[in-house]
Amino acid sequence: MLIYLFTVYKIFRDSLYYQRLRNALLLIFAVHVLGTIGYLAISGGKASVLDALYMVFITVATIGYSEVIDMSNSPAGRVFTMIVGFTGIGTLTYLFSAITAFVLETNINHAYRRLRMERTIAALSGHYIVCGVGRVGSYIADELLKTERSFVVVDVNEKTVEAHCERTGHQIYLTGDASDDDVLLRAGVERCRGVFAVSGDDSKNLVISLSARQLNPAVRIVARVHDPRNADKTRRAGADEIVSPDFTGGMRLASAMLRPHAVSFMDMMLRTENNLRVEEVVVPNDFRPCTIAELGPNPDWMLVAIRTGDKWVFNPGPTARIEPGQALISIVSPAGRRALEAAVGASGTLESGFPL
């Protein structure tokens, strides 16, 4: 409850009504101070400060109690009381109008959820940012959820974000333009592992790639491009990989015709209960070289290839050596990926899963 009240105060402080409230409170304070001084003067110094202040309060609040300071023989005192009452009531009306406008025009619960979301995102590190959660971005989000990776969804369309949250139950998102540096910073681009620039606009994906690269030179960026002529521009802007849904879809259709059993194998692997994927884990620089046999067998992963620079070793045997800087390609579940990372001490390295 205290957190909620503090959040409401923070929302109010950052709103346009904060200035109005502060001015109203200052005016009320000034009315009470000047009124107290005036009543002290009218009483000829006979009334106490508390009596004078009380006289101002009951006048401004329109309580109507009997006069603490006798005004029956002081026409000037009665005129002063009318001025205090008129000014005080007007100031109170101004104060209540500011509070009422804030309550009616501000969605406090929505603003509270937004601030809580930003605090959640601020605690993330090594996550992914999905810029655009339309037809393509929604599939990316599904894959990240299935492989148990943390990510933030960013989309300018609030209804699209709401549909994503309702469909998946994923509740870490920002509503805004991902090509804006401030939005990317709020999404944690400086601490993230990767950015998916997958909006439906090639030019926006280019700007997202450029902004993300400038804000985090080490981040991995994958961008969606419709027009092949924009691929080189987007890559020069900072994208590490360019994916064309039209090209990929065409290749998949050709594979379904020419090699149906291989395609069926990959499809069935993706539909298993433990969400098997072909994953890569980069061996950290401080890893002590050893063989696969020395690493120890584990039923949670199946090592299918080792990449050293541009050299590939497929189906490595137990005597194959694992050394720093290598990429270990394996068929694993999310739990198996974490076990393999722990085995080579790569829990903090950049890993990427790619269903084929």
Rank of each mutant, 00 (worst) to 15 (best):
A24D: 14
A223W: 00
G176H: 01
A197R: 03
A254L: 14
E323M: 05
D286N: 14
F354W: 12
A256M: 15
L21P: 13
V304T: 14
S211M: 06
F102N: 05
E241D: 08
A346S: 09
G132P: 04
H127Q: 08
A262Y: 13
C192K: 03
M269A: 12
S48R: 06
E280R: 04
L34W: 00
I306M: 10
E158T: 02
E158Q: 08
R236F: 13
L16W: 01
P217T: 05
T120L: 13
D240N: 14
R22M: 15
F354K: 08
P284V: 07
T36F: 15
P334S: 00
H32W: 14
K233R: 15
V222T: 12
L206Y: 02
K204P: 01
F247E: 06
T272P: 15
D227V: 01
C131K: 02
L50E: 12
R13Q: 14
E158F: 00
E166F: 02
P299R: 06
A30Q: 13
E323V: 11
V304D: 09
T59N: 10
L40T: 07
A342H: 08
M1G: 10
G169R: 04
L27A: 12
L258Q: 11
F354E: 09
T349F: 00
A343N: 05
S66T: 11
L276T: 09
Y128H: 10
V8E: 13
L328E: 05
G132E: 09
T291H: 08
Y4P: 06
Q214R: 14
I99R: 14
V281I: 07
G238W: 02
G132A: 03
R224G: 05
S150N: 11
T106N: 08
H226S: 12
D142S: 12
V183D: 00
P316N: 04
F102I: 09
R22W: 12
S125Y: 02
A178L: 00
I99Y: 13
T59G: 00
F86Q: 08
V133W: 00
D70L: 03
I221R: 07
L253T: 11
G353Y: 03
A339C: 02
